[in-house]
Amino acid sequence: MDKKATVLSILNDLTGEDFTNNLDEDLFASGLIDSMDTVQLLLQLQSQLGMDVPVSEFDRNQWNTPAKIIKKAEDAD
């Protein structure tokens, strides 16, 4: 599975929604994820993709859409 699919599946697990066609949806503004989901997202990125993202790296403006998260995952290595 490529990184894009992994990120989308993590987001699907957290929110119950499929973002394949909604890559620019604002996750925080729409209330789809909160701080708790954020932490789970970071932990999943760590365990599934080996991305080490500290909590204080998490700037909401840079992580607020599926597209941005995928970009972060792809840029990670």
Partner: peptide, 29 residues
Amino acid sequence: FRDFIFMRVTFFIMKHKLIKNPIRVSQVA
């Protein structure tokens, strides 16, 4: 408080699997 207490506490509890249920984790946090 959200960034430096709530999220760090939840991150810590979940990473070390101190509490399994995410709902319970958030309540403790």
